[in-house]
C-alpha cells in the first residue's frame, strides 16, 4: 500500500521522501484539488470508495495509510 502511495506521490507531484508524519498540505504543498486527485487515484487502484467526510479528516501520510489499511481490511 505504502509502495503504491509512494509511486503516486513521486510520479504526480515529484515528492520522494514520504515521511509518516508529513502533512500533505503543509509539507508537500498539495492543494485541496491535488489531494482530491490523489484520493481518486487511490480509489481506482484499490477499488474502494473514500467519503468526502473521511478524506477531509486525513492530513498526514500515516493517517492516510492507516485509513487505507482499515478500509482494505473491511472490504476483505
Amino acid at each position: 500500500m505504502i509502495e503504491t502511495l509512494k509511486k503516486m506521490m513521486k510520479d504526480c507531484y515529484g515528492i520522494e521522501d514520504l515521511r509518516g508524519d508529513a502533512n500533505f498540505k503543509k509539507d508537500f504543498g498539495l492543494s485541496s484539488f491535488d489531494f482530491v486527485n490523489l484520493v481518486c487515484m487511490l480509489e481506482e487502484d484499490f477499488n474502494i470508495e473514500i467519503d468526502e467526510k473521511d478524506y477531509r479528516a486525513l492530513n498526514t501520510v500515516d493517517e492516510l495509510i492507516a485509513y487505507l489499511e482499515k478500509k482494505a481490511a473491511c472490504s476483505q
Partner: peptide, 17 residues
Amino acid sequence: PMVVEGMYNKIWAEAKR
C-alpha cells in the same frame, strides 16, 4: 486557478505514469 493548474499538471502526471 487552483483547478486549472491542478488539471493541467494531472494531464502530465497521467502521461508520465
